[in-house]
């Protein structure tokens, strides 16, 4: 169990080395006209370097809200979020953009690729904002695409790619600036089960071989089991936080699955 409570708070210097992500009693309210939506109601959690966390929970339980906050796209209404020991709420918009660019790779649920832009150019996008030389941008983008198994389709447009392939481009884009944290909001939400496992294979490899810290959201318990740790949200709070026993290896699972998925 790794739920952080206020009482457990230790000195920041220790925190810094131990936790990549530390969230303390975070609340998030949305004002919808007269009514107030309480999307997060006191979430505290610590995630260490090299962890692989799957977040689950019913629709509307606050998973995306939480992920957006982790991804520095949104700020908590109250509470604190420390990223590598830095209190994110103290940072300027420009600092946040830099963190999104360098430190965090974000994979969105709906792929969110630019249409009429090739896989390579989509992947290159974050490097444009990172002030990297043109040659290196190309180099990195091709590498990232090869890593996700799309080395042969770099000049395809999103409309010429399957859902799984588009998601791979999105993952390549998230990885291109070599972040230390990968956040993925329902990366397998629109994919068939074999493709989903293929994506999990990529994640497991990244986590094992590169030590990338990964947090992903999923609805499917089968997918969540590929992670090392599962957190369950309900009504804006963490209800369960447990280490996964008997974790399957995606690469091996793939071998047992038929190449073409047949619907039951």
């Amino acid at each position: 169990m790794e739920i952080m409570t206020k009482e457990q708070t230790v000195t920041p210097s220790v925190e810094k080395s131990e936790y990549v992500i530390r969230v303390e009693d975070v609340h998030k309210y949305y004002q919808l006209g007269e009514t107030q939506v309480h999307a997060l109601r006191g979430v505290s959690v610590g995630i260490k370097r090299g962890e692989f966390v799957a977040i689950m929970g019913a629709s509307g339980s606050g998973k995306s809200t939480f992920m957006n906050m982790l991804g520095c796209l949104d700020k908590p209404s109250s509470g604190h979020y420390f990223l590598e020991g830095t209190d994110v709420s103290k940072l300027t918009k420009q600092d946040l953009a830099r963190i999104r660019n360098h430190q965090i790779g974000f994979v969105f649920q709906g792929f969110n690729l630019l249409a009429r832009t090739t896989a390579l150019e989509n992947t290159e996008l974050p490097t444009l904002y990172a002030r990297i030389s043109k040659e290196e941008r190309h180099q990195r983008a091709s590498e990232a695409l090869t890593l996700v198994g799309l080395g042969d389709r770099i000049h395809h447009y999103p409309s010429q790619l399957s859902g799984g392939q588009q998601q791979r481009v999105a993952i390549a884009r998230a990885l291109v600036n070599r972040p230390s944290i990968l956040l993925a909001d329902e990366p397998t939400g629109n994919l068939d089960s074999r493709t989903s496992v293929e994506i999990m294979d990529i994640f497991q490899t990244l986590n094992n071989e590169k030590g990338l810290t990964i947090v992903l959201v999923t609805h499917e318990p089968d997918i969540a089991r590929f992670a090392k740790r599962n957190i369950v949200f309900r009504d804006g709070k963490i209800r369960k936080d447990e280490t996964v026993d008997a974790r399957p290896v995606a690469h091996e699972v793939l071998r047992t699955m038929p190449a073409v998925d047949v619907d039951d």
């Binding site: 953009a97 999104r100 904002y129």
Partner: peptide, 15 residues
């Protein structure tokens, strides 16, 4: 949406 994507992957307001 394109603007959102660009911002999410690190474009600043100035960019």
């Amino acid at each position: 949406r394109e603007i959102g994507i660009r911002m999410a992957i690190g474009a600043t307001e100035d960019d």
